[in-house]
Nucleic acid binder design. Structure first.
Length: 622
RNA sequence: GCCCAGGUGGCGCAAUGGCAGCGCAGCCGAUUUGUAAUCGGCAGGUUGGGGGUUCGAAUCCCCCCUUGGGCUCCA
């Protein structure tokens, strides 16, 4: 997640200005950073008072405040947190001055003799004579590159928010520390606004809306990470599938179907068992069904003969490609598939619809010659733009993931170079801004990924465009070129939605549950005012359904006001109120989601209007 | 996977060692109403699962499942 990355990056940033500054020496942003960093020092001071044996690690400012990592003799409780907070406020009120100075590494080693994490930070300096910064306020001194306010009373309003586990230096093999997070803003109002924003974000959290709107559920019995789409959620998903099918058919994609299982031998050849085994569900051995005890001896099993739930389609699509001999004239050859994949995501990673164990990609594999890379990537980028425009989602960013130095990247530097260059030029030609990430490429090639943020600020990858220089060769894919020579094709792996599950989660939050007409599970609901209006209400609904719309009738014995309230809460785009006047004039009164009353519309006009709105996938409900 | 905090009718919550309760939703009945909640009644829980402590466990202890917040991971 990029926001985490940016947190990490702050550790390595050297502040532009010296240890301590007054408010008029630095700009507002830097001043805020300094308040946050200074608050982290006060936090460490207080924790050290309460736990003299505490080992303290690092405590940088972050986007919304600060944190500090500690190794403590026991877990911190919520009560500890409020106690710490109280004492921090007290210390701040005492108005200690921050004094920053430089000392030699050798001196610092002595000073922090009982602080192993500080010692490790000092290890990165080669010479003992080098200078490092330390910052002192009250009785507390920390190893510190600087970046403080002048005194503790200048620190803005804050609140400690939570404790979390965090690995030392972000490495899961290293000790896990307790990270105390705090929110800090320049003013009380801004701090309150921050928490109000969080509350607002929670209101549009897809996990909450999914329940309220009856879109999806999970079951302990079915299993973690397996989303169960309720009828209304399934309707939205069907519309998503329909859209991408339409767009892809128009662009020369051909749909294939390859099921859910494949033998281990396939994944061995593709390289996935070597690079990806931990995310695959374990092997299913046919011998396990045998009554012969000898045959279930693990040593006798061959992973190659076992079956696996497929975690991706690529090797299967390549095998399918191999069922025939292909010519360069067929290229680009585009295989599309919408089949569910299964990935054993670690339990701690699961999150609503955005991180699941059964996921359905709008997955395609495109077979091309190396010369075609750039042009085909451009076509895929166009498809991405069209899709996101249709959903009205403008806020995304691209990352270009390049190979790093590691041995994960199979050699053939020339092919990699071509691939990277082609990918980059396609992005540039499309006028797309992107960030390059070295060492983030797939084991089989470089890729361009699209990220969006969810309601609570977490970033998720949706679209991906990956070049594959490895698997086609491993799986023996060939094509005949214009000279009659057999060559290995390049394959583009690409998904536009990413997975329908994750995209649905993002969509729910993007619209805050108020879907545009074409996606809304119920598009129009007829509300008869009294029982005598029910016949006409039913007729209106029937006519709308004949026009291809999803319409129903609220024939409960509640008052109209209550039905409107329910329909509104269900975020139905159009509520059609039907009373004496409407029955009389063969019409329905249209109430737009949000409250606008459009007055009575004749039934045939209503049908034509709504079905055109649906057909055009218009974004506004009115 | 790791750390922390949770799991009580479908949903949101209360009960902290001594009779499991409230609201919404649901069902039944009455009401027939013009743009965000009509009234009355009924029903609904072996307190996530298993084990333990105790005269007695939703409440304390252990294991597991699961959710949330982080960390790590994300071909």
């Amino acid at each position: 997640m990029a926001n985490d990355r940016s947190e990490r990056d702050t550790l390595d940033e050297v502040p532009a200005t010296t240890g301590v500054a007054s408010p008029d020496e630095v700009d507002a942003t830097e001043w805020l950073r300094r308040m946050r960093h200074s608050a982290a020092h006060v936090l460490a001071q207080v924790v050290l008072q309460m736990f003299p044996e505490a080992k303290f690690a690092i405590g940088p400012p972050i986007d919304t405040g600060f944190y500090y990592d500690f190794d403590l003799p026991r877990p911190l409780t919520p009560e500890d947190l409020s106690q710490i907070q109280k004492r921090m406020r007290k210390e701040m009120g005492r108005n200690h001055r921050f004094v920053w100075q430089e000392i030699s590494v050798a001196e610092a080693r002595q000073r922090f003799a009982d602080q192993p994490f500080k010692q490790e930070l000092l290890d990165q300096f080669s010479a003992d004579a080098e200078q490092v910064g330390i910052c002192t306020h009250a009785e507390f001194t920390d190893l510190c590159r600087g970046g403080h306010v002048e005194s503790t009373r200048q620190i803005g309003p804050f609140r400690l928010t939570n404790v979390a586990g965090a690995y030392w230096r972000g490495d899961e093999r290293r000790p896990q520390l307790q990270r105390v997070y705090g929110a800090l803003f320049p003013s009380r109002e801004e701090l309150d606004a921050h928490f109000a924003r969080i509350e607002e974000a929670q209101r549009r959290d897809h996990r909450r809306l999914g329940r309220e709107l009856g879109l999806f559920t999970f079951s302990e019995l079915v299993g973690a990470g397996v989303p169960l789409l309720l009828p209304d959620g399934a309707i939205i998903r069907q519309q998503m599938e329909r859209l991408i099918r339409e767009l892809q058919e128009a662009r020369g994609y051909q749909e294939v179907w390859t099921g859910h299982l494949a033998r281990g031998e396939l994944f061995r050849r593709s390289g996935h068992l070597d690079n990806y085994a931990e995310v695959m569900y374990p092997a299913m051995h046919e011998q396990d069904r045998s009554s012969d005890p000898a045959s279930s001896d693990p040593a006798a099993r061959d992973e190659a003969d076992a079956y696996f739930l497929k975690p991706m389609n690529c090797p299967i699509h390549m095998t399918l490609y191999n069922s025939d001999l292909h010519s360069y004239r067929e290229f680009p050859l585009r295989y599309a598939e919408y089949t569910t994949l299964y990935r054993y995501e670690k339990s701690g990673q699961l999150s609503g619809l955005t991180r699941v164990r059964s996921l359905t990609q709008d997955d395609c594999h495109i077979f091309i010659t190396p010369e075609q890379i750039s042009a085909e990537v451009s076509r895929v980028l166009e498809l991405v733009q069209t899709l996101f425009q249709t959903y009205g989602m403008p806020n995304f960013r691209y990352e270009l993931s390049l190979p790093g130095a590691g041995g994960k990247y199979v050699d053939n530097p020339q092919a990699w170079q071509t691939a990277v260059t082609s990918l980059r030029s396609a992005l540039d030609d499309a006028g797309i801004d992107y960030v390059e990430q070295t060492g983030e490429a797939a084991f089989y090639g470089p890729k361009a990924d699209l990220f969006v943020s969810d309601a609570v600020g977490r970033e998720w990858q949706l679209s991906t465009i990956q070049l594959d220089l490895i698997q086609p060769g491993r799986l023996g894919c060939v094509y005949v070129d214009e000279h009659g020579e057999r060559r290995t094709p390049v394959v583009i792996h690409r998904a536009i939605h990413g997975s329908f599950e994750r995209f649905l989660g993002i969509l729910i939050e993007h619209y805050a549950g108020a879907f545009p007409l074409w996606l809304a599970p119920v598009q129009a609901r007829c509300i008869p005012i009294a029982d005598r209006h029910q016949d006409w209400a039913r007729e209106v609904a029937t006519e709308l359904r004949s026009a291809g719309l999803r319409a129903d009738v609220d024939d409960g014995n509640e008052r109209m006001q209550a039905k409107i309230r329910n329909g509104q809460r269900r975020k139905i785009p159009y509520l059609l109120v039907i009373g004496d006047r409407e029955v009389e004039s063969r019409s329905a009164s249209v109430r737009v989601r949000g409250g606008a009353d459009l007055g009575a519309r004749p039934l045939d006009q209503l049908c034509a209007w709504l079905s055109e709105l649906q057909r055009s996938r218009a974004l506004e409900p009115d």
